[in-house]
Design a protein around this nucleic acid. Structure first.
Lengths: 274, 274
DNA sequence: ATAATAAACGTAAATATGACGTTAATAATT
DNA sequence: AATTATTAACGTCATATTTACGTTTATTAT
């Protein structure tokens, strides 16, 4: 959306941002008695994996602010919004994702709160905040989502959302580079011990797809023969009666992941590995 | 401390709580220009291990509120306080621990934010909040600390702090049972892959001390012979020229943990165990 | 038919784990 | 001074897992 606003110290302002537009928002507030908590927000690191380009991406939105023909701010930030008084933190995160992508029921994890007093105090952030209704001393609860890049259509028009490879991010507004970095660290760790890798892959995948994804996330090389054996032996990795189509070499066997079987088989092992 | 306060709907109130008393606090605010953020707090789960009784404990403080001779609230809660505008979340946690125990430089971890709209809405909580300066819609950033029970002297007089075994907690105020439960789950997980166990033990310990602690935390039995072999083979578990003293059976070898050696040896292994 | 390519399978050594039996050292007791 | 009780500490073997490679097979393109 593009808005013309008069507010703060800046006389005439054009700005774009990922949030419900003012009119809709006011209606919503009157109807649901929703009130934003002005110093508490949720920011979402949306990880999307592109199985074709083998790229782990983060969804960012353009933060654009112009006054009297001068571009004041033009960079990228995470998607996020204030917590409403009536909702849980999880609900805020779910709402934010839905408003940006239309998606619900994606894997989501609250991984850390960021609350340094100086987290919103660089020059561009201050310019931006002047035109927003929020507090400089805002604490944000950060979540990350895991989904498939292909599930998100970026043709919604209004939101200037763009995928960036997680290893090739621009300098972001606020403390959002830090937030992504910490989300990524958490993802690296968690994908080793929980089957969340499959949240990033299509329902039908090849063993090599899984390996490529692990290599993308972890930045390492894995021996294909050992990896293949390991995965195939898992009861919850199920070979389908299907093979790849449209490939110009020997087509690979397709598999699926069964969360049901995983959960039934799962038993905490207390292996101490320090 | 014991305070007599007139505020809210309750005419004459006696209350005790773990926080800087009003006078000190106001002075501090004037001097440092400290201002509490009224809807953001930090709560601390202080885990303390008692190597003698082999008990993993949580430090709780008594929440007591009396009006006209009637006891309105008399239960336990975690220690916590509002975040000041000038401080980071980590600093808040450090401050809260120091005010309760006098301790600094203890292992600390931010593990989750709790922000359900109904988290402070049971009867006792509402009574309590009436006499406090904070918002019913408060979000708390929860930390846990790992230390030795013996390092905390509870004879400070004012604070009614008490150790409770983590597996035998009373019903707590606010959502503090939930918070402790989640801290405990995080601790269970983390102690398997990081050498944080040693934060709970004295500098000099026996192999059996470590095993007992693991068994306390995880609630499992471990084969002593296999566990011993495993630990002794670690380069960073260093045998000292000392043995236990004052035991009435064969005294055990004392060991120490070298974080230096651990860090030098440490290299991330990307073992995929899903 | 043949070549090129990637998928898929195989093998052996090294390492780690789990289950259990045995020995050694010390303090208390006689 | 010898004996006993008790806990610390060491040892062994079978099995499972990991690592490091070599080999075969199926498919498409030529």
């Amino acid at each position: 959306m593009v808005l013309s606003i008069k507010s703060g110290n800046i006389a005439s302002v054009k700005m774009t941002f990922n949030k419900p537009n003012k009119t809709t928002n006011i209606k919503k507030i009157r109807f649901m008695k929703a009130e934003k908590i002005l110093n508490i927000s949720v920011d979402c690191v949306v990880f999307g994996y592109d199985v074709n380009t083998k790229s782990l991406n983060v969804l960012l939105i353009n933060r654009f602010l112009e006054s009297k023909g001068e571009v004041l701010v033009d960079d990228y930030v995470l998607t996020g919004y204030h917590v409403y008084t009536h909702e849980t933190l999880d609900e805020t995160a779910t709402r934010v994702l839905k408003e940006l992508t239309g998606l619900t029921n994606q894997y989501k994890k609250q991984f850390k709160a960021f609350g340094n007093p100086d987290r919103l105090t660089n020059e561009k952030d201050l310019l931006w905040i002047k035109n927003e209704e929020f507090n400089t001393r805002t604490i944000t609860i950060a979540y990350y989502f895991l989904l498939k890049t292909e599930d998100v259509s970026l043709n919604n028009g209004n939101d200037k959302a763009t995928w960036f490879p997680v290893n090739d991010l621009p300098i972001l507004g606020f403390d959002h580079n830090t937030i992504i970095q910490e989300a990524y660290e958490d993802l690296k760790e968690k994908c080793l011990s929980e089957p969340i890798i499959f949240k990033l892959l299509p329902d039908k995948f090849t063993i090599n797809d899984v390996q490529d994804l692990y290599e993308s996330i972890l930045g390492i090389e894995i021996d294909n023969r050992n990896f293949r054996r390991k995965l195939i032996n898992k009861k919850y990795i199920i070979a389908l009666d299907e093979k790849q189509v449209g490939v110009s070499k020997r087509p690979a066997q397709l598999y699926m992941f069964s969360l049901d079987i995983y959960n039934k088989m799962f038993q905490k092992n207390y292996l101490i590995s320090i």
